[in-house]
């Protein structure tokens, strides 16, 4: 019993000690003074010995945890740091055998050059257009479908919904082979239509929104019916405002999807007028001799990455809401 109490006391002291735990030395010296005072107070030398040992072990463990986390954090952050560091160097400085840890002279012109050389402005507009149009249409379709599954009654509803969910098991690559042929047959190659239409329906988003709609009490719907409100008006005035967070999640994920899409655009619309930003990124900075202007390339990479960081910082909770249930990568 006494030992338990002792443990608790140590626990209570712990947070205070850890708070300033930047240097091990400081903690150790603190530890020593505490040892001295507690020695005077305590009579049972044996017990004291044990608890002191525990205390030291505990602190060592904490130090190890922080050291490990700091080490891992450095590894996680390093590529971002290296991207920014490289993007601000001159070509000569980038080619040094021993790299500088920060540019001697900040070459912000790399960013302007990258924009021009890779035609990033055009790629950005293309991507934005595809992103906005496909998000808007996708939202309309998702809302209508989710509403039908959540509120309306029709024969075979459960079977149909089950069949929809089953298609989520199938890897998208399997669809691509046929869709590539279909899009070609429709004459959609090198058009925005090819980039938008095949991906308008996402079963996962329908599922997500339907679950959300189901949580809205049915009494509201029945009351609206009694009042003679039309389905569309009810959907617009009640369901959509209540499900807004889910709709925002879908919007963000869909926009990020357009921003990061690579494989499909590469197949069907990799021409100057329709190229998406990720497709333009990979090979734009290699000149005729095969040499790559790395600082410029890194500047372009940074330009593509920054909007994603901004979204992450400001809209994190919406992204998390969507992805923690899906396992899909943005």
């Amino acid at each position: 019993m006494v030992e338990n109490k002792e443990n608790k006391i140590i626990e209570e002291q712990q947070p205070l000690e850890v708070e300033k735990e930047e240097s091990t030395l400081e903690v150790e010296s603190k530890e020593n003074t505490k040892e001295a005072t507690s020695l005077n107070v305590m009579h049972e030398a044996n017990l004291e010995h044990v608890s002191n040992k525990q205390k030291v072990v505990k602190i060592l463990v904490k130090v190890a945890i922080y050291a490990f986390l700091i080490f891992m954090a450095i590894i996680v952050l390093f590529p971002f740091y290296w991207m920014i560091n490289s993007s601000l160097k001159s070509v000569e400085e980038y080619k040094l055998a021993v790299p500088t840890m920060w540019p001697r002279r900040l070459m912000f012109s790399n960013y302007a050059d990258a924009f021009q050389v890779a035609n990033l402005g055009r790629l950005f507009l293309n991507t934005l257009f595809v992103g906005v149009v496909s998000t808007a249409l996708s939202l309309v379709i998702t809302v209508l479908t989710a509403f039908a599954f959540a509120r309306l009654e029709f024969k075979g509803k459960n079977a149909l919904f089950g069949a929809l969910l089953a298609t989520m098991m199938i890897p998208g690559e399997l669809f691509t082979i046929t869709n590539y042929g279909t899009v070609t047959a429709f004459g959609w190659t090198h058009t925005f239509t090819a980039l938008i239409v095949p991906f308008l329906v996402s079963v996962f988003y329908i599922y997500l929104l339907r679950q959300n709609f189901m949580q809205i009490p049915n009494e509201l719907y029945l009351a609206a019916k009694v009042d003679g409100t039309s389905d569309i008006k009810y959907l617009w005035k009640v369901m959509i405002p209540l499900a807004l967070p889910t709709l925002i999640s879908i919007t963000i994920l869909k926009m990020m999807g357009a921003w990061n899409s690579y494989i499909w655009p590469n197949l069907v619309a990799n021409d100057e007028a329709h190229r998406m930003i990720t497709n333009g990124l990979r090979n734009a900075f290699t000149d005729a001799s095969g040499e790559t202007n790395m600082p410029r390339q890194m500047a372009a990479v940074a330009i593509v990455s920054f909007p994603l960081f901004l979204i992450f910082i400001f809209l994190r909770k919406y992204i998390m809401k969507g992805v923690s249930r899906s396992g899909i990568k943005g």
Partner: peptide, 18 residues
């Protein structure tokens, strides 16, 4: 630790290549 979550895998792949 969450920061690499929303990255473009082509773009950051290029940083690793560098």
């Amino acid at each position: 630790f969450f920061l690499p979550y929303v990255t473009n895998s082509i773009a950051i792949g290029m940083v690793f290549a560098a």
